[in-house]
Design a binder for these strands. Structure first.
Lengths: 192, 192
DNA sequence: CCCATTTGCCTAATCCATTTAGGCAATCCC
DNA sequence: GGGATTGCCTAAATGGATTAGGCAAATGGG
């Protein structure tokens, strides 16, 4: 019988697409196999386990997202860069909710260190270079930006902002403006 | 044979404790049943489904957390209240990771509206009353605080901050100080 | 162009979680 | 104490995860 021509890549991409359609948590080896019209067991020649499949989807999404963010950032600085950076994340989450969820999969230390997650951290730091922060503060700021963007996106995805009349886009813009203002003033600096 | 004396409450509490031990995503009707030494099917007299069990655990945790936050907030205002609020969330997540995860379960609109989630939103607004924000901004600020705290806690739980030397507690304090400064200045206000 | 090697996909089987149906016995309450 | 209730059980169907082992299709060297 004809072969489906599976490869690790095709399996992972199919998994990512499935995630966007049905949610990352519903991605299963069996479901991906159905998509290819092959037996579930057949996928085990390409991925080691269900966990392995999910990890590969996460790494794929992390890479893809890092590329998009890098593009968005090209040639920008300051508030402009901050906004482009934030929007790239939010757009990706809106366009590929399953993949975005995948990027939040908990990876073990060495997998994480070898992943595109490192590029994400570097890009965040690159943006902060446009502000005037000394070292311990820069790390704090990296964490704050990561927290705000990730938190906002996941609360928005969970429907947390749909019960109030205020537009989610307006809040997003306001938050980015606020962060910009904050960073230009050096962060926590106690008010005199 | 002796009965285990199950009730919905005992099942839910056992589920919450299990979540803290093995992670919310590994909470299963079968695992909870094992904990009681009864057959899996027996739990179905108390909860409708696996989903129902998880939802009940989420509502329970949301309630418990709201109580803790309310206590922490009592008699405080300003930066003091903001810090106590933030710490209450972070402490709960550290002490009860499984339950904290449960609070992030996606609830349908009516379940959410009847949940303690409403109290959480009210308490956030109560803190912001200590700052001087007009209405559209107050909603933006509610969203920002929710995003930062939730984002920070979940990134920290995912091990995202363990690769850098800078202490997570220091970043947390710096972030709270920064938010306080920002709010006292009215948020996004463009710098002159 | 054919045979050997590789390898892609299959069948079969096991294990475990979810869920429903139906039954017996412990408990409650009058 | 006896009837009604209900807690927990057995049985069984469904479906995902995973392993072992086999056949056939693709590939490439002679």
């Amino acid at each position: 019988m004809a072969r489906a021509g599976l490869t690790v890549e095709r399996v992972v991409v199919a998994g990512a697409e499935l995630a966007d359609r049905v949610g990352f948590e519903h991605v299963t080896v069996a479901a991906v196999a159905r998509g290819f019209g092959v037996q579930t067991a057949s996928l085990y020649s390409h991925v080691k386990s269900s966990q392995d499949l999910k990890t590969r989807i996460a790494l794929y999404a992390l890479e893809e997202l890092a590329d998009l963010v890098a593009d968005a950032l090209a040639g920008r600085a300051g508030r402009d860069a901050l906004g482009a950076f934030a929007d790239a994340y939010r757009d990706y989450a809106a366009r590929h909710p399953g993949r975005y969820d995948a990027t939040r999969l908990r990876l073990d230390a060495e997998t994480a260190a070898a992943s595109a997650g490192v590029r994400h951290a570097q890009m965040t730091r690159a943006i902060l270079r446009g502000y005037d922060l000394t070292e311990p503060e820069q790390t704090h700021a990296v964490r704050m930006l990561g927290s705000v963007f990730h938190g906002y996106i996941s609360l928005e995805a969970a429907g947390g902002f749909s019960h109030t009349a205020v537009d989610a886009q307006q809040s997003w813009d306001w938050i980015i403006d606020s962060l910009d203002t904050l960073l230009r003033h050096g962060g926590a600096r106690p008010t005199t």
